[in-house]
Structure formats: structure tokens, C-alpha cells
Design a protein around this nucleic acid. Structure first.
Length: 160
DNA sequence: GTTGAGCGTT
């Protein structure tokens, strides 16, 4: 019950703001229109502490580039790396990327600041990046829930 | 040139 509620909640909020080319802002924007970014149903204050300064960013718009990612995340600390993963064949964004900070503290701030917020009209999710070993572990324990505190790590975006 | 799951290149 609780799962579907948050999932539905997520799906309803759509893109918003910041993009001048979007006209239906009022439809998409949340009630608190002063400084939108937060999606309903996400508690960035209740997240487990990070163990790595490297973050996995999902839900990116396909028009989001390395530079845009860097711009969005550099306010939380010094970025050692910021990369949007592109398909080697087509050269276009796969819709996710990585950012790496010098310290875990900076990464924490970035996650709290950007998880569930908007970038280029799409809701992005910020999670700790996995190492190869962590990926294997995650496969074994199926009961492991979403790192971002959202059950369905689905992307939300594009209103209208 | 956007429609959507997921963990990258040396």
C-alpha cells in the first residue's frame, strides 16, 4: 500500500521550472512554488550515510551533458569527476551519470541537495555508486530496497 | 531529436 502510494505520488509530479521552453509550468509545479525542486514523497533527511564520495545519478534528461551535470553538482563541493554516460554507438546520453567528490561530506550534501530534484526538466535520483563487488552483493540480496528511499527508482519527467 | 531500466570509460 505504502509502496504504491509513493510510486503514484512520484509519477504525478512532473517536470517543471527553470526551462523557459516549457509552458505548462503551473500544471507541473508543486504547490510550494517558491523554490520548487523537491519532489513530494522523498525524505532526504532519512537516508543512510554514504560510504563513498562517488555518486550515481539516474533519471537524467538526454539533453543533459557532462558540463550541465558539473554545473548542477559543483555547488556542493569540488568535483573530481562529472560524467554523463553516453552510448558508444550513438554517442547520446544513456540517461545516467557519475559525479565524484573529494570527500564524503560533500557527496552527502550533493545527495541531499539534488536527490529528487529537477535537472533539465527531469527528476533525478542520487545514489551512492556501486563497485563491482557491491553490484554482486546487491544481486544476492533481493530484499535490498532502493538507496534513494524511493521504492521505484523510476524516472519522472516531461509534463504534457 | 525525448518518452526511460539502470552502475561508466580508461
Amino acid at each position: 500500500m505504502a509502496l504504491s502510494a509513493s510510486t503514484l505520488g512520484l509519477r504525478r509530479l512532473l517536470s517543471a521550472t527553470f526551462s523557459p521552453s516549457l509552458k505548462n509550468l503551473s500544471v507541473c509545479a508543486t504547490r510550494d512554488s517558491s523554490s520548487i525542486p523537491q519532489i513530494e514523497g522523498i525524505d532526504n533527511s532519512n537516508l543512510p550515510p554514504l560510504t563513498t564520495p562517488k555518486l550515481f545519478i539516474s533519471g537524467l534528461s538526454r539533453i543533459t551533458t557532462d558540463e550541465k551535470l558539473k554545473e548542477a553538482f559543483s555547488r556542493y563541493g569540488q568535483l573530481l569527476e562529472a560524467k554523463v554516460i553516453t552510448d558508444r554507438a550513438s554517442g547520446r546520453s544513456k540517461g545516467f551519470g557519475f559525479v565524484k567528490y573529494g570527500t564524503i561530506e560533500e557527496a552527502e550534501e550533493a545527495r541531499k541537495g539534488m536527490n529528487g530534484h529537477f535537472l533539465d526538466g527531469w527528476v533525478i535520483f542520487v545514489d551512492p555508486a556501486k563497485s563491482a563487488a557491491q553490484k554482486a552483493t546487491a544481486k544476492q540480496s533481493e530484499a535490498y530496497s532502493s538507496p534513494s528511499g524511493v521504492k521505484a527508482n523510476k524516472t519522472v519527467g516531461w509534463c504534457g
